[in-house]
Design a protein around this nucleic acid. Sequence first.
DNA 1: CTGAAAGCGCTTACAG
DNA 2: CTGAAAGCGCTTACAG
Lengths: 343, 343
Amino acid sequence: MKRKKQSRVTLQQVAEHAGVSRATASLIVRNSPHISEATRKKVLESMRELGYVYDRVAANLRSQRSSTVGLIITDIANTFFSELLIGVHQTLEEEGYTVLLGTTFDSDTKQNHLLSTMLEHRVGGVILCPVSETSKETIDRINQLDIPIVLAVRELPGANCDYVSVDYKVGAEMAVSHLIQKGHRRIAFLGGRSESSTWKERAQGYYDALHQAGLEVDSSLVVDGPPTREGGVAAVQQVLNHPDPPTAIFCFSDLVAFGVMQELRNTGLIPGQDMAIVGFDNVPEAETVTPSLTTVSSFPRLIGKHAAGLLHERIANFDHEQQRVILQPELAIRNSSQQVVGK
Amino acid sequence: MKRKKQSRVTLQQVAEHAGVSRATASLIVRNSPHISEATRKKVLESMRELGYVYDRVAANLRSQRSSTVGLIITDIANTFFSELLIGVHQTLEEEGYTVLLGTTFDSDTKQNHLLSTMLEHRVGGVILCPVSETSKETIDRINQLDIPIVLAVRELPGANCDYVSVDYKVGAEMAVSHLIQKGHRRIAFLGGRSESSTWKERAQGYYDALHQAGLEVDSSLVVDGPPTREGGVAAVQQVLNHPDPPTAIFCFSDLVAFGVMQELRNTGLIPGQDMAIVGFDNVPEAETVTPSLTTVSSFPRLIGKHAAGLLHERIANFDHEQQRVILQPELAIRNSSQQVVGK
DNA sequence: CTGAAAGCGCTTACAG
DNA sequence: CTGAAAGCGCTTACAG
């Protein structure tokens, strides 16, 4: 059975069918109040009968508006980002936006490509979780087009945009101070890209906590790498071969922590008992893994909500002054860090 | 510093700047081969200088094409769906599509709303992971508009669409047969919405495996519920109060299994030792949880790839005959089911 | 409320 | 390759 591709029903056809002008029909789809109830009903009925579907794309083209927004993240397989996405979606869909999603997998090329595509699609704004080596030109390009952009999660030096994130430095400080309080003196910091602002801020918190306790930083206990399970596995291997190995590990993220715990088991060590572990993010899995993971809550869904809110404001008022929202993290203490060190 | 919203550079302006006609400029942005190298270079240079951004929306409107595709899933926080999303994205972005993402959280209202919005945005097609109680009207509506649609993960009775999924029945059979082989005679089936095709198929596999082993089905060991961690917690509570409790649990999904394991621990039972557990999906966490979870691999990323492939074909050739892709699952045997029952 | 006209930024088709 | 014209489906502005 061959089916002919029927063309879309237009507002013109609806108007004819209902016996009104196209202008009137247009007012009705846009919910104008200056229409008598009788006409409105008649036209809505015609739409239903003809199976009319509003063409938002044509409308946006004519009125120079946009009802889409781009969201670019680095890794959707990371629960942190799927939570952030939920926050963005919830807020933006309420406001009537549709979200174009792109995942960069931390590739700058991919990021540029995605941004171009989104701009070509006339997005009204972009929420960007930038890749580590994002160039300032990337942001400049968007600013020049006067497309509102909100950075989330990672800051870009010199970028002139709204920014929303969590205070990673304070989070790292909380985590490391907690370990120190449990008696640990040799604490490693594993995983994460050392180029990224998110890593640098955590590193700063890590240093600060050590200094406050009068401990020296041993840079051989700081090993960066991909912020993934595999990255955790690789990083912990390096540290375990250390002549004077650590007794506790502060991990860049929960994902890294899971890799670390897995690899510890592989080498016969029991995480939480032979080695204290603290993660970062507080993903749902952190609660259910064994031992349950002490970690820093970074509230990704809330980050998403705030980013969406800022973007919405910025779209409404482009010249609004630049805003920064920095959420305060919280330490969730669980079993992976409870053992007190007794020498 | 007030900035005036500058309007978009148009192809017309580019043409004028380069001293060619608008038609020629249009041919160049569309990579037509009938253009001399010199002209092409000149025009591309003008584009760069003026900061031209191709307006794909206007182009699509004129040419009656679409470069977007809708993807509707039920829960992005579920790794199964984020993996599926990755598969869809990878395939579709290669083909030049941009993905509009929507999450229904299993609400029919939300699903209808998302579909409407996507149709209004002129999507070229839709990949739908339908909510459990999707009405046939929902699909009819899309079919009437001649918008290609591919169903993924859940089948809808009577829906006249391409479909891609995993053979859940066979997967469930593998899981339950494995438990029977380990000596279990009382095996519960926990979690999942009993209205959904994905549940029914698993249930069928569960029944079949029991029958093949000459075991009777005890319907009090079958407890449905939300396909989430919380659902697992709730379901296992019911079964633990059973006068003749099971020795093994086949869970609707890994997520349910994690909830089950968590709750077992809460009640003082050791998962994998006091109670054998098998999950479904094989999410990354299944490997790292303790005990590591025996589970059925359902290859969500591959499902996504196939769904995207089918949609792409269907867009290219609307009258192509209806296709079904059913992937074969695999059992990943780990520690949560290794204990042999000795009475 | 209506009607006729113009225009958003592009593509298409056609005569040169 | 060019140029002028028409049109995708809508909104806008304006005279009635």
